[in-house]
Amino acid sequence: MVKINGTEQPLEGQTLAAYLHGAGYDVTRIAVEKNGVIVPKDRYEETILEAGDSLEVVSFVGGG
């Protein structure tokens, strides 16, 4: 299982890019941390989710 924003999901083997696309995220508005470390945007395609990974996908909304 992969923990995403606190919820366990069976996503082992998927790329991060595929997960984000499937979940409907706009990649221009997000920052992703995997196991406490930022994932650079140009590595979303090559990052493969593994059992035990913990992801935080922060999706920003406007206003400041």
Partner: peptide
Amino acid sequence: AQQKAMLANAVLEKLPGAYFVAAS
């Protein structure tokens, strides 16, 4: 929102010693 995400990615990638406090 896009600017916020841009800055989050830039700071967390390139300035790993700094603390980043964002708002959303």
